[in-house]
Amino acid sequence: MRIKTGQVTMQLCTALFLLGISAVAPVKHSLEYFYTLSSEAPNFPEFVAVILVDEVQIIHYNRNMKSAEPKQDWVNKITEDIPAYWEKRTERLKLNQEMFKSIIETAKPCLNYTGGLYIVQGILSCDWDDESDEVNVFTQFGYDGEDFLSLDMKTQTWIPLHQQAVVVKELLDNNKPLLTYFKHYFTQECRHWLKKFLNYGKSSLMRKDLPSVSLLQKTPSSPLTCHATGFYPDRADLFWKKDEEELHEDVVKGEILPNHDGSFQMSVDLDLSGLKDEDWGRYSCVFHLAVGQEVSKRLDKRDIRTNWREKRSRDKGFPSAVVVGLLLLAIIALFLLWRRNIQTSESSPSSGEDPAVKKEISEKQTMLQTT
């Protein structure tokens, strides 16, 4: 496993800043090839290859595809310089697949393989320092989910990482063409292609966006959430610190999630249950981007965004709102009933106008006249 130097660089830059010395941290870029070879894995291609620049996937290929394909639009710019790039890249990946298979066939007797499922994974990468122009390389293989072999390019020997890999190491040390291939790749090709990809994708790969940082809390008893959104790239960290020292207890860190615009967001919760009022000013939430840029937000009650006060006010006002609403409905219903009665009485004949009564009066008048 490689040792990441990001935290060491951050501490060094901080120390120089405190001493009043200005410093520009060098930027390291990486080109990584991830390979997976499997046998009899259900619903999974026999061979998969993924290529990343600065941890951003740029090319994908698997055994079931006719050609490798770009995962970023800017990668297609390469065809302006190399029109047949995708054909050549696809052919190269097919050769990588055959190389993997030949290594496995050579190693099968040492692995006591008798058939069935197996998974072999490999990573080839180089890191380039844009200030010193130094390149560090890394090659490692895994077998069935466990570290298996790594390659030391300085001595050009294989390092066994598993007991079963000891015999395989001896076989691969004697494979001079394979060692020659790796040496040529790491000394010539890796730096060349990394610089090429960085040039094509600089508008995207070199993009550095700092986030907006907010303090959020659902209720006074809930954990306090520090939320950072809108940052790019996703090589970032978000943490709570007390008196300039990072906190690990009473802290729950969330995952980095994508936003719809291509930027990212993340959050980290802090348990406030044991926090005294006089200690609030000693806490800060810090966002750190991989290139060394930071955003810090000190813990202040006035900056906490919450809706629990408004919600409680709405809840308290709910019964009176219901009463007022019911009263209005009752008034409307009474008004409609009164109006209907009025309309009915106006359209109905009066008691003196009843036809039966009129007929009786008419008959009596006729009898009087005849007598």
Rank of each mutant, 00 (worst) to 15 (best):
E360M: 14
R282H: 04
G20W: 13
P211K: 00
V291W: 01
V357W: 13
L215V: 02
L299A: 02
L337D: 12
G142Q: 15
K359P: 07
V56M: 10
L194P: 03
L327I: 04
R191E: 13
Q156D: 11
A23H: 09
D243Q: 07
I59K: 06
D300E: 05
L272Q: 14
E170T: 12
G115W: 11
R282E: 05
F239P: 01
Q293H: 08
S273M: 00
V286I: 00
D315A: 07
Q57F: 09
A23L: 11
N76P: 02
I51P: 08
S22E: 09
F182A: 05
M1P: 13
A356I: 00
D271K: 00
H288C: 10
G145C: 02
K208M: 01
Y185F: 13
R235K: 13
R191W: 14
L52P: 00
T36D: 07
N43R: 05
N112P: 05
R282N: 03
R305S: 11
E310C: 14
A165Q: 01
I104P: 14
M65S: 08
G6P: 10
T14H: 12
Y185V: 11
D303I: 04
Y33I: 08
Q57R: 15
C126D: 12
D243S: 12
I159A: 06
K4L: 03
A15M: 11
Y185A: 08
L327N: 12
E346R: 15
I331G: 13
N307L: 15
I123H: 09
Y118I: 12
R89V: 14
T157K: 13
F318A: 02
F148R: 14
S263W: 00
A41N: 04
N112H: 08
L149C: 12
D234N: 09
S351Q: 10
M206D: 12
I159W: 02
T370P: 15
C13N: 11
H260V: 05
Y85T: 00
W86A: 01
L179Y: 04
T14V: 02
R235Y: 07
E249C: 05
D54W: 00
P83V: 03
L37D: 15
D277R: 03
K276Y: 10
T225V: 06
F34S: 15
A107T: 07
R298D: 07
D279F: 04
E245T: 07
R2T: 13
S67D: 06
Q265S: 14
S347L: 12
Y61P: 10
D73N: 07
S125Q: 02
V135G: 08
L18S: 05
R2E: 06
R92E: 13
P45H: 14
I59G: 06
D127G: 08
T157N: 13
P355H: 08
K4C: 04
V168Q: 00
D152Y: 04
G325Q: 03
S267N: 10
R92H: 14
E69A: 11
L216K: 06
K77R: 15
F148W: 11
I304M: 15
D127A: 10
K108E: 14
G122H: 01
D269V: 03
P70W: 03
D315Y: 06
L171N: 09
G116Y: 01
E249F: 12
L31C: 04
S212W: 05
V8P: 00
